[in-house]
Write a protein that binds this DNA or RNA. Structure first.
Lengths: 154, 154
DNA sequence: TTACGTGCAAAATTTTTGCAGGGAT
DNA sequence: ATCCCTGCAAAAATTTTGCACGTAA
């Protein structure tokens, strides 16, 4: 977990007048240890239990809600049917997701041109954008050429 | 429901060797009667029951799965926490969603430029796009000017 | 000390499934 | 007649909540 994330967490705790407890610490550690790793509630539960097996689902859900509300965690749709969460919006607030239909890998990307156009369209519709996200489901070219998919990340 | 939709449904039924039954008909009627209206599973349940109160959830979920699998219904994330479904991808296969944070209204929009750029980025990452979607959460300018939000759809 | 936080277990939601009877082709 | 389909009810999966005890500040 980076210091920046640690600071944001502390700021959120302070802002809401909450307390930093060990159960919360464990869950946040599990959530932010790898910024590239998205997860579902259940996956985070397993990760947290890897750090402290006593972690309870009740506290997990309460902490997820806290982090989402505070903007440190974003709820995203990765097409799994259940909500996934993305811990990387702190460091890359404007990234999008490409989901590989062949291996389910998720590639994050950013693009200034598209971002500008999104703002443009939003304004034209009479709104001011608060958050923007793109999901692209796609097939891996390499798979078709070589029969393999995993690994390569453009 | 348009004839085009009716035809697509029939084609799906035929392709899979299924049968067109009254319970399915009711659910599909509820789903496609208003292409602009997104819905959750539960909302569709209520709509279907308005047509035929005997509609069961089991059949509803089975029919939703059938339509999603067949590409007639798209699962989308409207930020409600539960999956929503969009019946309008048959008529507008490439539209995106803007969600008003003030009134929760969903505005659909399409844009050729962005669509091209998405394909471009996807190719650059080494993939071929299968489906693309954008979600923008935004605040209504009119609300800030006049204190009202609903109604206006750019 | 004193709220706030926690875990447990129960409850509430949401979705899936087994099964026996019913219906489309 | 055949095999798919349906509804019911039970089960499964996921998330929320009440409560008594624990603990950070």
């Amino acid at each position: 977990m980076t210091d920046e994330v640690r600071d944001k967490i502390q700021a959120l705790i302070d802002l809401k007048g909450l307390r930093m407890t060990r159960p919360r610490e464990v869950i946040m550690e599990a959530a932010f240890s790898d910024p590239g790793a998205h997860f579902t509630a259940d996956e985070l539960y397993e990760r947290a239990r890897a750090i402290d097996p006593k972690t309870s689902r009740a506290t997990l859900y309460r902490t997820i809600a806290l982090l989402v509300e505070g903007g440190l965690l974003h709820e995203i749709d990765l097409g799994k049917g259940v909500a996934s969460y993305d811990p990387n919006f702190i460091e890359s607030p404007n990234h999008n997701h490409l989901i590989c239909l062949d291996c389910s890998r998720v590639v994050e990307f950013e693009d200034q041109h598209i971002s500008v156009m999104e703002d443009c369209i939003t304004r034209r519709l009479g709104f001011t954008a608060a958050s923007k996200s793109i999901q692209i489901k796609a097939n891996c070219d390499q798979l078709r050429r070589t029969g393999e998919c995993s690994e390569r990340v453009g």
